[in-house]
C-alpha cells in the first residue's frame, strides 16, 4: 500500500522519484567498500576484542576459552604494559615532532622565490618512496658497528671518540636509530604537505604584512601557521596514526631490543601473538592500544573539530 502511494507521488513530479532513486543508488555504490571493510576490519576487530578476554593459544586455535580478564591482569601485574606504552609514546612523539619541525623549515625554504622548486621538491620526496624494509636494512648498514659510514663520519668530525659505536647496544642509541630512519622516510611527505598548504596561502596577505613591516618570525607565527593549520593538523594526525602502527622499521632494525628498549605496543602485540603464539595476550595489548588511540582522537577532535573534519 505504502509503496503504491510513493509511486503515485513520484509519477506526479518526476523530480521526487529521481531524488529517491538517487539516494538508494548512492548507498548501493558504497556497498563493495562496506563489504570488504566488514570482512577485513570490523569482524576481526570484534573477534580481537573478544579473544582478548580469553585463553587463546596455538593449542586451542578453534575454541578460545573465557579467562576472566587474566590477560589484562597479567599485563598490569608484570607492569610490561607500562613500558610498552612509554616506549611507544617516546617513539611517536619524537618522530612526529622532529619531522614536523624539519618539514616546516624545509617547506619555508622552498616556499621562497626559488628556481627549479619542483625539481627540488621531487628530489626531496625520493626517500619517501623507498620501501620500509629497505629503509631499515639501509640504515642498519650505515650504522654498522665496524664498517658503518655514519660511525666513520662522526668519528672524523670529532663527535665520537671511537669508530666502533654500537647503535644496538644501549636503549637510547637503539631508540635514536629507529627514530632517525623513520624520520628520514616520513619527512618528505610531511614537507610536501606543508609546502602545498603554504602555496595555497593568499599571497596578497603576505605582501600586505610585509608592507606593514612584519618581521619574518611574526609573518610565520601570525599569518602562515594559522593559514596552514588545517593541513598541519591533518598531516600530524596521519603521522601519529602511522607511527603507532610502525612495525617494519623497528622490527628490522632492532627487533624490539636491546631487551625491551624499543618494544612498542605494535612489536609487543605481534611478538606475543605470532612468536609466543599467545593470541589472547597479543589481542589484549592491542585493545589497550586502541583505547589509548580513541582517547587521543576524542581529545584532538574536541580541540580541533574543524581541522580534523576537514581532513575527513
Amino acid at each position: 500500500m505504502k509503496k503504491n502511494a510513493n509511486n503515485l507521488s513520484n509519477d506526479r513530479t518526476g523530480k521526487i522519484r529521481f531524488r529517491m532513486n538517487n539516494s538508494f543508488f548512492g548507498f548501493f555504490l558504497t556497498v563493495p567498500a562496506l563489504i570488504v571493510l566488514v570482512i577485513v576490519v570490523a569482524l576481526p576487530i570484534l573477534k580481537g576484542i573478544y579473544v582478548s578476554f580469553c585463553n587463546y593459544t596455538i593449542s586451542n586455535l578453534k575454541d578460545p576459552v573465557w579467562n576472566n580478564f587474566k590477560n589484562y591482569i597479567k599485563l598490569f601485574e608484570k607492569k610490561d604494559i607500562f613500558g610498552y606504552f612509554l616506549t611507544t609514546i617516546i617513539f611517536v612523539l619524537l618522530t612526529v615532532v622532529i619531522q614536523t619541525v624539519l618539514g616546516l623549515a624545509i617547506a619555508l625554504l622552498l616556499n621562497t622565490k626559488l628556481r627549479g622548486r619542483n625539481v627540488f621538491r621531487g628530489l626531496f620526496l625520493i626517500p619517501w618512496t623507498i620501501p620500509s624494509v629497505v629503509v631499515a636494512l639501509l640504515w642498519r648498514w650505515m650504522l654498522h658497528q665496524q664498517f658503518g659510514v655514519i660511525n666513520y663520519v662522526l668519528h672524523k668530525a670529532g663527535i665520537t671518540d671511537t669508530v666502533n659505536v654500537s647503535w644496538t647496544l644501549t636503549g637510547i642509541l637503539a631508540m635514536a636509530s629507529i627514530i632517525i630512519a623513520s624520520v628520514w622516510k616520513q619527512l618528505p611527505y610531511m614537507m610536501v604537505m606543508l609546502l602545498a598548504g603554504m602555496q595555497s596561502v593568499d599571497a596578497s596577505l603576505i605582501e600586505a604584512a610585509k608592507i606593514d613591516g612584519a618581521a619574518k618570525f611574526k609573518l610565520l607565527w601570525h599569518i602562515i601557521l594559522p593559514s596552514i593549520r588545517a593541513v598541519m593538523v591533518s598531516s600530524i594526525w596521519v603521522a601519529i596514526m602511522n607511527n603507532f602502527q610502525m612495525y617494519t622499521i623497528i622490527y628490522n632494525m632492532t627487533g624490539g631490543g636491546p631487551v625491551d628498549a624499543t618494544t612498542t605496543l605494535s612489536i609487543a602485540a605481534y611478538k606475543s601473538a605470532f612468536q609466543s603464539y599467545d593470541f589472547g595476550r597479543g589481542a589484549a595489548i592491542g585493545v589497550l592500544w586502541l583505547t589509548l588511540l580513541m582517547i587521543i582522537t576524542i581529545v584532538m577532535n574536541h580541540s580541533n573539530r574543524r581541522a580534523v573534519n576537514d581532513y575527513q
Binding site: F25, I45, S266, A273, Q312
Partner: peptide, 28 residues
C-alpha cells in the same frame, strides 16, 4: 549523492587506519 548515514559511513572508512593492524591480523 546524499543518503542516510553517509557521514557515518565516510567516517568509518576513514577511521580504518586507526585500528591496530596487529589486532586485526590476529583474528584475520
Amino acid at each position: 549523492f546524499n543518503f542516510a548515514f553517509k557521514n557515518a559511513i565516510m567516517t568509518s572508512i576513514m577511521s580504518v587506519q586507526m585500528f591496530p593492524i596487529v589486532v586485526i591480523l590476529i583474528s584475520l
